[in-house]
Simulated assay, not measured.
Amino acid sequence: MKKKGHTPITRVKNPEPHISDPDWIIWAAWADRITFEEIEQKTGKTEGEVIKIMRHSIKPVSFRLWRKRVNQKSIKHRKKFEYSRKEITSKIKKNDYL
């Protein structure tokens, strides 16, 4: 007997909730690929408001880990991310000529 062909379903540990769901802000704050600017554009919540939401919504230990992660990664702020990308690109170009 031959198996029917089907496309496997990729399951994500933390799937993206709907944007109208209050948990979307928490999900987006944890996601590295979503900047604070994008969160503000989609929800109207500023970085400070997102920080307050995170402080009240998650455990204190998780909040400290999240703040440490956000402060170390340049991805959460678009300007820092673009600057770091330019810096990396210039280093790569310099190394090409050596």
Rank of each mutant, 00 (worst) to 15 (best):
M1A: 15
K2W: 10
K3D: 15
K4E: 13
G5T: 12
H6Y: 14
T7V: 12
P8Y: 09
V12M: 14
K13M: 10
N14L: 11
P15C: 15
P17I: 09
P17R: 08
P17K: 06
H18K: 15
I19R: 09
S20E: 10
D23K: 10
W24N: 05
I26Y: 03
I26G: 01
I26W: 00
W27F: 10
W27G: 04
A28M: 04
A28Q: 02
A31C: 12
A31S: 14
D32G: 08
D32P: 06
T35W: 00
T35H: 02
T35Q: 05
T35P: 00
F36Q: 03
E37C: 02
I39F: 04
I39C: 04
I39L: 08
E40Y: 07
Q41G: 02
Q41H: 06
K42Y: 01
K42A: 05
G44C: 11
G44N: 03
K45D: 01
E47C: 10
E47P: 00
G48D: 14
G48S: 14
E49P: 00
E49H: 02
I51V: 15
K52T: 10
I53F: 01
I53V: 13
M54P: 04
M54N: 06
R55E: 15
S57M: 09
I58E: 02
I58G: 03
I58M: 11
K59V: 04
P60D: 11
V61P: 02
L65P: 00
W66N: 06
K68D: 11
R69E: 06
R69P: 00
R69C: 01
N71A: 12
Q72I: 04
K73M: 05
S74I: 06
S74K: 08
K76G: 03
K76M: 06
H77R: 14
H77I: 11
H77Q: 14
R78Q: 11
K79S: 12
F81C: 07
Y83T: 13
Y83S: 11
S84G: 03
K86S: 12
K86T: 14
E87Q: 13
K91E: 14
K91R: 13
I92T: 09
I92Y: 07
I92R: 07
K93N: 10
K93A: 12
K94H: 07
D96T: 13
Y97M: 08
L98H: 05
